[in-house]
Design a protein around this nucleic acid. Sequence first.
DNA 1: CTGAAAGCGCTTACAG
DNA 2: CTGAAAGCGCTTACAG
Lengths: 325, 325
Amino acid sequence: MKPTIKDIAARSGVSIATVSRVLSQKTGTYSEKTQAKILRIAKELGYRKNTAAVELVKKRSAVIAVILNATPTNFSTGVIDGIQKRASELGQGVIILYAGNRDAQMLHKAIVTALERTVSGILLTAIEPDDADLTLLKDSGIPFCFVSLYLNQPKILSVSSNNESITSQAVDYLVEQGHTAIALAGIDGYHTGTQRIAGYEAGLKAHGITTSCIKYGDYSYESGRKLLQEFLPLKVTAIITASDMIAAGILNAAQEVGIRVPEDLSLVSIDGTIICNITTPDLTSVTQDFYRIGSRSVDQVMGHDVETFVPVKIEKRGSVKQLER
Amino acid sequence: MKPTIKDIAARSGVSIATVSRVLSQKTGTYSEKTQAKILRIAKELGYRKNTAAVELVKKRSAVIAVILNATPTNFSTGVIDGIQKRASELGQGVIILYAGNRDAQMLHKAIVTALERTVSGILLTAIEPDDADLTLLKDSGIPFCFVSLYLNQPKILSVSSNNESITSQAVDYLVEQGHTAIALAGIDGYHTGTQRIAGYEAGLKAHGITTSCIKYGDYSYESGRKLLQEFLPLKVTAIITASDMIAAGILNAAQEVGIRVPEDLSLVSIDGTIICNITTPDLTSVTQDFYRIGSRSVDQVMGHDVETFVPVKIEKRGSVKQLER
DNA sequence: CTGAAAGCGCTTACAG
DNA sequence: CTGAAAGCGCTTACAG
């Protein structure tokens, strides 16, 4: 049988209240002598605290629930590292719940699981809930925060890059390099995509460019490969891609049909993960700080007042050609 | 205040026992009429089960703890997907605990956390505990299973690829392609590395090759880049790499100094993730079935009798040249 | 098919 | 500094 505080109390001749105080370090409520004895006996017995019992009486568990969807993007590693690190600093555990791929049912189930565990906070990573789930979250009394997704609604916590800024910076950079026929590829049809389109079009407009070209996709390598086909008949000189994977797909498919990057086609990728170093040539990117997005989202959901947008930066590598004007 | 079964009982005029039976679907112990009423009222009140209370009385939580270390490898996604999927099929939640980077303290803390939660099983992914922690696990009464690591000890559950088979197959394939000067690069100094070395040397021996060449590393892209330098003075024609990232690093560093792959140097990578498609040329690999490793580890830890080794396969892509004999 | 009661292992005012 | 007692929200024999 697993030992409990009752066993420790019996062996050490004190009450379970005292054992509890020592074990949960209510400093100042016990003598050093008692502490030493209890700690020794606890160790002897191989005592382990029962978290369920603690959570039941405290009515809140020191755990942050992270809900992820299984999109084919690889950005989540950095985000989760950041979450994990910061959560651990704040004494919070992390529980990961998958929500499938834009699967409303699985998402709902994940949210319910988090609520049933009375977690201290819920982080929704690259997830867009429907109205019912949003209401459920709001009514739960448990703080929640969107991560890597900006809903632009009042009183809703979120931490992400500024998507409009991402694409407008990419346009600025490409125009600076002499490009005017600039496409946007692999974008999704939801909030993130919409915001990126807005920044892209604002960027074009600011430079007096009137032709835009937008292709949708799902962030994956395969999606990038397919998209290249659609660009073949068009005469763009540069493409901004919604992810490193999209960029890699376009790049490789382009090279297979004899289109050289950056000589014939320039690429600016959004994300800036290690993928950008692995391709040949390596990819110029608008780099997101995923680790920081993750760690800051923990602060946000734990009630610390931190900013929503985490800055991005352009990293110049080998996939953009400077054009003659 | 969050409603409890007591509130539902009061409103519906039955006892909390009956409410509990309905809510936990102890079929056959309640009438349809009672069920309907209780379900309706539970919904009206926005009732959520309190998992902590359930776990406390059941003395076991329907959760599998996955302990990961933060190695710079990218294989974990597939493993975790597999774990998540299979766990969900079996009605188990998944909690992820990080153990840092071969950090004994963090690992110990993660194990203790899992034990304190009385999880139904513990999965240690690419983790080697010290003797104290192994004893702790054994004495806990909670089943545990090593994932993507084979300890070769009796009565210890584990699911992984057969490391000896991985490298011996790689050697076989390279010899088949006419290579005899074959190196092994990026290997670790622990169990996995040792087993891969054994398979590599057995493979060489089987083909009467007496010269071996082994370089250690840490599975990362950067590690691969550094390793190429060490190969410069040597005259190997093929390298088996410990991970796709190592392969990518060697590949890119090689191309930068004018060594062509596969013309001047052949590469067989171990892992076979999407990285192999992204590099130029793409990488021939010994592909591990990470998804299956993950899902099978769940079966293993839940007491289903499944095999330890998940088969690997050689995937021929563009990084191996056939030599004249 | 249903209820009264005990109990899971802790924490925490309250009293001393 | 310590103890007795109540209670967190459930489940489950037991009895009917």
